[in-house]
């Protein structure tokens, strides 16, 4: 095993180009487990800790450019306003120690369906900035990023540099089921983002299909129901039948398996409950916001 320690992003890309099998390591929270337990013996480890800008973020007018290694703790502490869904998801990641090391780049690189960030990333509609020495920067829409169980759209010579997330234009929620009250891998997870500007709703489901997925039918159904009922304007409580239909469609979007962490049918069931609850919380928050806005006007 060789340990590569590039001092800059350019050096990192060059190293990855020269050694396409090199395994990038940043927070180490996935890679080191595999090494400690003898599940993996990469020829090269490519340390990204020295590249300062991976740990930084910029808040722009419309988007946040989030460095791949910004630790979850920082997202929770500093980006709750701009990225509420991701901040909530970050808070459910493992333990404080892990949140201090791990970042979104690791979740994306590993592309495990159980990664906690995925539902929030999917529901935000972000883009992943990847780069190679040979072909330069490529922006991958999150919807095209996950290809299979622990497989993503990254080429062998590419590294994940940042994620570009639209700043929240409405309430976002995240919820995750585990069989313990802290430090637990998701049995399944659900993220929702209301986008009042476009009058759309986006979702993300974790651990209930071979890849993180969106419940697109549920999103379309809900958007139509909200539009039709004038909910965006009148801010009324979403009717239980609409919420139920949304929840059922979210359950239907799952394609889960039975494993040691839970059964397929439980996962489907729980995703439905989480969909209904998180929609309720997000919508309550939207109603609260619009009520305040009206009051001011």
């Amino acid at each position: 095993m060789d340990f590569l320690r590039p001092a800059s992003w350019e050096e990192a890309l060059a190293a990855k180009a020269e050694h396409p099998t090199a395994v990038p390591i940043a927070g180490g929270t996935d890679v080191m487990v595999e090494i400690n337990f003898d599940h993996r013996r990469p020829e090269y480890l490519l340390d990204l800790n020295r590249i300062g800008d991976l740990g930084e973020w910029e808040v722009g007018e419309k988007t946040v450019r989030l460095g791949a290694s910004v630790p979850y703790t920082k997202i929770m502490e500093h980006l709750r306003g701009e990225l509420p869904g991701l901040a909530l998801a970050s808070h459910t990641v493992a333990s404080p120690q892990i949140r201090n090391r791990g970042g979104v780049g690791g979740n994306l690189g590993t592309a495990s369906p159980a990664g906690d960030a995925h539902p929030a990333l999917l529901s935000s509609g972000c883009e992943v900035e990847v780069e190679s020495a040979a072909r330069g920067v490529r922006m991958i829409p999150i919807d095209e990023f996950y290809l299979g169980v622990k497989r993503n759209a990254l080429q062998a010579d590419e590294l994940i540099r940042a994620v570009h997330l639209p700043k929240a234009d409405g309430p976002q929620q995240f919820s995750k089921v585990g069989t313990r009250n802290a430090m637990v891998i998701a049995v399944c997870a659900f993220g929702i983002a209301l986008h009042p500007e476009t009058r759309t709703v986006r979702t993300g489901i974790g651990s209930a299909a071979p890849t993180p997925v969106r419940a697109k039918e549920a999103e379309a159904f809900l958007a139509a129901a909200l539009e039709e009922g004038g909910f965006w304007e009148n801010g009324k409580i979403i009717t239980p039948s609409v919420a139920k239909q949304f929840a059922d469609l979210c359950s239907a979007a799952c394609n889960p398996i039975d494993d040691v962490r839970g059964t397929a049918s439980y996962r489907r069931h729980a995703v439905g409950i989480m969909a209904r609850r998180t929609l309720g919380w997000a919508w309550e928050s939207y109603r609260g916001q619009s009520a305040r806005t009206e009051g001011v006007a």
């Binding site: 320690r5 390591i25 080191m32 480890l45 404080p96 120690q97 090391r101």
Partner: peptide
């Protein structure tokens, strides 16, 4: 200064 699990930090990363 940051609490971390030292089992998940590769030795080379602490240089």
């Amino acid at each position: 200064g940051v609490p971390v699990c030292s089992c998940l930090v590769a030795a080379g990363q602490v240089e």
